[in-house]
Each structure stands twice: as C-alpha cells, then as structure tokens.
Design a protein around this nucleic acid. Structure first.
Length: 494
RNA sequence: GCUCCUAUGGUCUAGUGGUUAGGACGCGGCCCUUUCAAGGCUAAAACCCGGGUUCGAGUCCCGGUAGGAGCACCA
C-alpha cells in the first residue's frame, strides 16, 4: 500500500469539495528575505490561516545560475523569525511533495509532453543568440511567434537527429482575449496578441517559472495564488495553460509593490535592509511583521497595533490596497516603540540584555530596563541611552543652567552643597527616601522641586536629558558613585 | 514602442453619489511632569488635471498627465 499517495488523494478530494484554502509562499533561493517577500509570505499565510487552511512553502530553484545554496536556510530563518509557520514544505511533507522544484523535474517533463502531444506547446530549436531583442524598439507590436511553431513532425525529428537540444514553447492562440478576476485588481483583460509563445521547458531540462508555477500550484492543490503584481500581465498565459490541461484555475491575489519614500524601489544593492537586517538593526520581528502587514492593507477600523494571531483574524484579502506603498522608517520606528512598550517588563529586559555595554553587570540591569523601556523605540537605542551610567560624560558648567527648572549655576551650587551631607546620611538608598529628602530640601531652601532636582540629575548624568530623574539615577548609580558625581559637579561650578 | 495597473495631506490609509473628507506616522503648540520620554489635548496639512453623467461627484464614464509593472532558455 502506497500510503503517501493515498494520503495525497484523500487531501486532494477533501480540498476540492470543502474548498479548503491552500496558499503557498514560493520564493526562489537567491539570497535573503526582503521586505516584499516577507509581506507576500505574510499575506499568503494570513489568507490561509484566516480560513483555517494550509500554508505551504515551496522552493523555486529552477534557475541553476541564480541559486544561492545558503539562502534556503535564510528563508527558513526569516519565516521562523517572523513567526510564520508553514504546514507543508521541503522539510515538512504533507503528501504533495517534493516541495523543491529542482526535485520535480520528471513531473514537468511529463506535463510538458502532454502539451506537445495535444498541440498546446511545441519544440523550438532556435538558439538563444538568434533571438533579437525586440522590446522597446517599437517593432514588437505583436506577441512573439516563433518560426518553430509550424515545424512538421518530420522536421522536428530531423532537428532532433542533428542533436540540437530544443526548448518547449507554449502555443498562444492568435485570436482572442483572456479575462480573469483578481481579488485586488478586479477584472483584467489581455489580448492574446500581447502574449508571447513563452518557453515552458528550457534546454537544460528545467522548467521556467511560467510553467512550474502552474503545474505545481495545481498538483499541490493551491486554491489562492498570492504573488507580486509583476505577474499580473502574464497570468493569462498561465490561465491558458490551466485550460490546456483542463484544470480549474486558482483565485488570484496580486500584490502592489513596496517602494521607498522617494518612489524608487527597495534594493539590497542600494543598501536597503532585508527583514533580517531590520531585526539586526534593533527592530522587533513582530513590529516589522505588523508594519509590513499595514503596507497595503488595513483592517477597516482604526487599529494599527497587531500581533500575528490578531492579524490572522483581522486579515481580509479583499481589503488589500491597489497602489504601491512607500516604506517609512519613521512609522516603523514608532510602531516598534509601541511593541516595545507593550512588552512585559520582564520580556523587555530579556530582549534588552544583549544591548547593554560591556561592564554593565555591576548595575542592577532590571532597574535600568524598567527606566528605559518606555524611552526605547529601537533596541539599538539602548547603548546610547544608558552609556552615561557606565562613564560620566564630560560636560560644561553651563549645563546647570536650566530655565524651566529655574536652575542657575548659583542655585545648583547651593543645592549640590546642601545635598552632600544629606545624602551621606541616608541609610536605605531607595527612591522613596531620596525623593523625600530632596523634597524636604526644596521646602527648607524655599526652592521648587525642579530647581533641586535639575542639578542633581545633571551631575549624575552629565547630560541635558536622561532616562529617569535625579532619584532614579541615584538609585542605580549607588550611594558612592552618586556622591562622587556630585562632588565632580561641584568642582565644575567653582 | 506596445500592453496592463495605479492616483485622498510629506508618508501609510478610511471613504463605494449628499461627510465640517476620518484615523495613524512625522512636524508645531499646550497640559502633565523629577530632565527626557510615555500619556492627554490641540494646530497646520490632501481628493493629479480637463471634460462629461447627475439636482448633487473624492466616489461613476471618457480623455490627459504622472508613476509603477510586463513584454528572457529570471523568477
């Protein structure tokens, strides 16, 4: 008993009767997970999961020249990082495998043969170099029709005997218009005259994307094809293929592109970050996923903060926007801050830990984390935020003048001098005690609380701004270091 | 060149014939405050242009313009 094929059959009939959603993410392993890919994967995942369906990973490695072996690993990593879990994939058989196209070569050959037999495709013996570059010259006003499309069986046989390795081309009907429905773009019609007799099977025996995607999507029982908008105009060619095979075609969801704010496209070469790069830059994976989901889709209400499970329930492919969206680091940064603030203090601390500078073990890092969580928009802000704890920056006496706090070098000197003996006496170095002492000092000196706090905070941080106020910094620095920094401040004031 | 697609503040977007055109980021101001954040309030800022259809168009139609995409033995 062949259980694998039996399982496949069962699933297949189930899927067609119950219209179980099956979507796939089908990247080619050419490098890393870029932002557009991430969103395509996400939308495919959400479409399937929102309907209780199945999400599949398929590797499209039919271009032997462009494959980067390690990048399959990068795809796994990217999906895992994003929390996008696939139900079927190269390492997770669901009965529709193999899920790597280079392992499906005999399948493509078999189906290509069906097409040549039925006349929907033909052998072409032209050499690559023979093909003139026709586009953009104005000469190409019709779809490409290869001279080989009318070769007689004898001629084909003769060419074969010459030892020429042919390609197989799709025979596009000369007349007619193809129309299909896309969930994002609506009804699309394209004249067959615009379509080329595209190559289905290359001379190296590998299929082209144009062929493999149709065969695999059908064989893998994909119900919803979700991919970039660049495939919109070639979709009629795929539909003709479905028709030639007598297969039912899938639903289509073509996605607009993600571009830069200046309107140009994202590109690794120009230094635009990939998903992994963004994570490395200190953005939370869940924030990136959230942000990317919003680039071209909205929930129909005013929510913007989403975790993946909420996206699953909120997502609706019919609310995908048609126009390109510009990637805004400003907004990502804000959303990242939202996600950081939404973390439990414990979880934030866990994620912040790797970002603390060397030597910070001597501090109570949980306390520092508690202070900086609300002030952190990006994890990589952390070193800059906390640096002064480790080493007091050099600063000028002018820093003690602060209008809003009614602080002047004179008042600062007075406060710092008064504070020294007071602090020295404190036994329990707690925020409450420190605050009480300083409030009392303000009262006895007849000064605003701010006027007392400012010089202390300044002396402790050496900065105009700091995460946390005077007493909070003092608690973290400890009594000795606090006293030392106050003396240092006093020296500047002399 | 041909074909397809798109077009609401700087950016992401809501809007499906009648709205003071809503929200978010960013930017400005105010409040709060132990500096800065966070939080709250608030201001400025948009329907690409031209024709129609209609009592009435951001919304429908046509034409421009601008932008994007496709036209590979790449995906």
């Amino acid at each position: 008993m062949d259980w694998a094929s039996l399982y496949g059959t069962i699933q297949q009939s189930y899927s067609s009767e119950v219209t179980m959603f099956r979507t796939r993410f089908a990247p080619s392993p050419t490098g890393y997970m870029h932002i557009g890919n991430l969103r395509t994967a996400l939308y495919a995942y959400l479409t399937a999961k929102g309907a209780g369906g199945t999400f599949i990973l398929r590797i499209e490695d039919t271009d032997q020249n462009r494959n980067v072996p390690e990048s399959v690993q990068a795809i796994y990593n990217g999906l895992r990082l994003a929390g996008i879990e696939y139900d079927e994939g190269p390492d997770k058989d669901g009965g529709y495998g193999p899920y790597v196209q280079s392992q499906r070569l005999p399948i493509y050959k078999e189906y290509a043969k069906k097409l040549t037999n039925s006349g929907h495709a033909y052998f072409c013996f032209c050499q690559k170099e023979d093909k003139p570059i026709l586009e953009k010259t104005g000469e190409r006003t019709q779809g490409y029709r290869d001279p080989c499309r009318n070769l007689s069986p004898d001629e084909v046989k003769a060419k074969f005997n010459e030892g020429i390795m042919p390609v197989i081309r799709q025979r596009i009907p000369d007349q007619g218009v193809s129309t299909f429905f896309d969930h994002v773009y609506g009804e699309i019609s394209i004249d067959h005259a615009q379509l080329d007799d595209q190559v289905l099977l290359k001379s190296d025996g590998f299929p082209t994307y144009n062929f493999a995607n149709v065969v695999d999507d059908h064989l893998m029982a994909i119900t919803h094809v979700i991919r970039g908008q660049e495939y919109l105009t070639s979709t009629p060619k795929y539909n003709l293929l479905y028709q030639a095979f007598g297969w039912e075609r899938p639903e289509y969801i073509h996605l607009p592109h993600i571009i830069k704010e200046d309107g140009s496209k994202l590109s690794k070469r120009k230094g635009d970050p990939s998903f992994e790069d963004l994570v490395r830059m200190g953005y939370l994976p869940e924030a990136i996923v959230n942000y990317v989901a919003l680039l071209g889709w909205n929930p129909g209400d005013e929510r913007e903060y989403f975790l993946l499970p909420d996206l699953v329930t909120a997502f609706d492919m019919n609310r995908i926007v048609k126009s390109n969206a510009a990637f805004s680091f400003d907004k990502l940064r804000w959303l990242n801050g939202e996600h950081i603030r939404a973390l439990s203090p414990k979880e934030f601390h866990r994620r912040a830990l790797p970002y603390y500078p060397a030597g910070f073990e001597r501090f109570n890092l949980e306390q520092i984390s508690a202070l900086i969580q609300v002030r952190t928009e990006n994890l990589s802000d952390i070193p800059g935020l906390v640096g002064f704890f480790g080493k007091l920056p050099s600063y000028e006496a002018e820093l003690f003048a602060h209008q809003k706090s009614k602080s002047t070098p004179e008042s600062s000197k007075q406060v710092l001098q008064a504070v020294q003996p007071l602090f020295a006496e404190i036994e329990e170095w707690s925020n409450e005690n420190l605050f009480a002492v300083l409030k009392g000092l303000a009262l006895s000196l007849g000064l605003k609380v701010g006027t007392v706090m400012w010089p202390i905070r300044t002396a402790l941080s050496g900065q105009e701004i700091s995460p946390g106020g005077a007493t909070e910094l003092a608690v973290i620095l400890g009594k000795d270091e606090t006293l030392r920094r106050i003396s240092l401040g006093l020296e500047k004031l002399d």
